[in-house]
């Protein structure tokens, strides 16, 4: 019953870690048992986005090298009882772990969790191979920019070549105003080009930065991005949720940002 999802993109800075943190937190808020694994060895970030950086004792490399048990490396989230984080090692590099070791670790996590989410590093080297090794399905994150879409296309090809069962698209950092005046590709432009099923649309929302400053994922709150992530979580659970219609929401959006400015 459990599902292992790798969150990947090819290009850096498009929102893999933010997406992983929010999906994991959202699924846990919906009562699921979730393990988040930061597979970016040497550049660990998921702990910071989750606000759990002060609780790290052991990490992924320690588990793989047999220095500790999986349970010892899993950090329990401060918000939801079913949510755990396996941090990456900061002082090692990608070669410290191999795909067979990842498969073995993911297999044992699978027995204890409903969802295992793997935050993939940027690039297509060994870190990527490690992250996708044990995954059942993948979420490809892209922004509506040429470079990021090109990398996403390459990643989709590699996921296919590695026989990942299912690959879904998340279009992140959409700027509604720019799309409306024709200066940004629309979500349908992006999904037409990449030709994989769309599972999420996340608007460019400054609340994402605020949330990461605070180390609190924004899934579930009333911000546009928070709602977009909640919707993705519900789609992961198999519910049919319509995509947010940003065109109609401009006035509300302005009101929402207005409230934040006043505060």
């Amino acid at each position: 019953m459990s599902e292992v999802i790798v969150v990947t993109s090819g290009k850096g800075g498009v929102g893999k870690t933010t997406t992983t943190a929010n999906l994991g937190t959202g699924l846990a808020a919906m009562g699921k048992r979730v393990a988040l694994i930061d597979t970016d060895i040497g550049l660990r970030n998921l702990d910071v986005v989750m606000g759990l950086e002060n609780r790290i004792v052991y990490n992924l490399v320690d588990v793989v090298e047999g220095k500790c048990r999986i349970k010892q490396a899993l950090i329990r989230d401060k918000r939801y009882p079913g949510l755990y984080l396996m941090p990456s090692a900061q002082t090692r590099d990608k070669t410290a772990v191999t795909p067979p070791q990842m498969i073995k670790m993911v297999q044992s996590l699978r027995e204890q969790f409903d969802y295992v989410l793997l935050d993939c590093p940027a690039g297509i080297e060994q870190g990527f191979q490690n992250a996708i090794a044990g995954a059942d399905r993948a979420f490809v994150i892209t922004t509506p920019e040429v470079s990021s879409i090109r990398d996403a296309d390459r990643i989709i090809g590699l996921l296919e070549a590695n026989e990942i069962g299912r690959t879904d698209l998340v279009v992140n950092k959409i700027k509604i105003d720019m799309v409306r005046r024709g200066d940004m590709m629309s979500v349908s432009d992006v999904s037409d080009i990449l030709a994989i099923p769309l599972i999420g649309i996340v608007p460019d929302d400054e609340n994402v930065v605020i949330a990461s400053n605070q180390g609190e994922p924004l899934v579930g709150n009333a911000t546009l991005a928070g709602r977009a992530y909640t919707n993705i979580c519900m789609r992961v659970l198999g519910q049919e949720i319509p995509f947010l219609n940003f065109e109609k929401r401009i006035s509300i959006w302005t009101r929402v940002t207005g409230i934040f400015h006043r505060n």
Partner: peptide
Amino acid sequence: KDSGKLAKDRLKILLISDR
């Protein structure tokens, strides 16, 4: 031309050769 449309057209050509 709108730059969004331009981006899409550039990508289409780019991806054909990439793929």
